[in-house]
Design a protein around this nucleic acid. Structure first.
Lengths: 205, 205
DNA sequence: GTCTATATTTGGATAGAC
DNA sequence: GTCTATCCAAATATAGAC
């Protein structure tokens, strides 16, 4: 028995369901996606879907599981180290943010988040803690280091972090809207780099 | 006939329907709000609602009609004039933005916009043109005037406008999320003023 | 203008044959 | 594991009496 991992060696239906569900949930949200539609897109009957998932919510939870999983998290020590490089840190941070923005899976999760955010209290709280606070913390630490080392004008690191992050979010938000309709994002894609340039000029010593 | 305006002098049912519909649509979105729920909250049967509106969509459109109506628009000349006052212009602009954020009706419309934005192509386009571009235009003009008059460092007025606006949007976005759950927004409310202070310091000559 | 009753559709979910 | 058949609930909408 060469592959008895997990006992069942699948026909792949469950994966197909998940893949289809991701597309549908991320474009139409929970309410906008029916079990019927998922099943029909997969090419099976609804009843067959229930062999793989207990109910609609379980499918959704499986899809939304990675909604706050960032593939590009920075480690604590890495932050403090890289922060000493000033603008270079910001460029690195923004590059990761940009990759997230254009990464297909991250983009889908962001769309889903934006759709469900207003209808799901738990998501709102996770958005604040995971999405916002985590980034603010990273950036604050970096700006603090920069201030300590005389690289940037001193001030409240949290405030500077907020200013810096908010623009990144807005760019990502707009890009996500444009990509919904398959519109060009060329102008906005370069906005990330321009933001770093302008911002650095405004805070550097 | 003292009041033959519009022929029908209403029992107020239509207004009551609209008022109820605003609350429901703005908190649960189009799909999340049923005609049943609206009618029952008003205190009538569904069938009675159809005496006032052709269908659910017509109720929604009536509600969403004012989604981009800003009660605080600045006139062209006013912008150029006030821009000469530098930081004072930014303070005024932000104060209006802040009022919008906390104005009950505007807040509802913003919630509705955020809910529906990801599911409605037309709204996305209106968001870009009415919401984003209009503000960018106003701010760009102001920053241009400020640059011409040596009040702020010269640069691309549009870029500076983008930096300034994006933070305002993010603050509003976060406040809206908090208010969804009736959480305190004290910390964020002062962020508006702090933003102006920080931003002005970073661009002034 | 509101009610009762009803038509129709859509969506989530289960039973049981194969 | 998939299918057919079926059930049930919820939702949009209409007809016609009052």
């Amino acid at each position: 028995m060469p592959e008895n991992r997990e006992t069942k060696k699948r026909s792949g239906t469950k994966e197909k369901i998940l893949k289809t569900a991701i597309t549908l949930f991320c474009n139409h949200g929970y309410k906008g996606t029916s079990v019927r539609k998922i099943a029909s897109n997969v090419g099976i009957r609804e009843s067959a879907l229930y062999n793989h998932f207990k109910n609609k919510e379980e499918v959704f939870l499986e899809v939304a599981k990675n909604i706050f999983n960032s593939p590009f998290a920075m480690k604590e020590e890495e932050i403090k180290e890289t922060a000493l490089r000033g603008k270079n840190f910001l460029q690195k941070f923004v590059m990761q943010y940009k990759m997230l923005t254009f990464d297909k899976q991250s983009e889908n999760m962001f769309k889903l988040l934006m759709i469900e955010l207003m209808q799901n209290k738990e998501l709102r709280e996770q958005f604040m803690s995971d999405f916002h606070n985590k980034n603010i913390k990273t950036l604050s630490e970096a700006f603090f280091v920069m201030m300590q080392n005389g690289l940037v004008r001193s001030g409240d690191p949290m405030m500077v972090a907020y200013e810096f992050l908010s623009t990144l979010f807005y760019i990502r938000f707009q890009i996500t809207l444009l990509r919904f309709d398959a519109k060009s994002t060329d102008a906005l894609a370069t906005q990330f780099e321009k933001h770093v340039d302008i911002f650095w000029e405004s805070i550097k010593l």
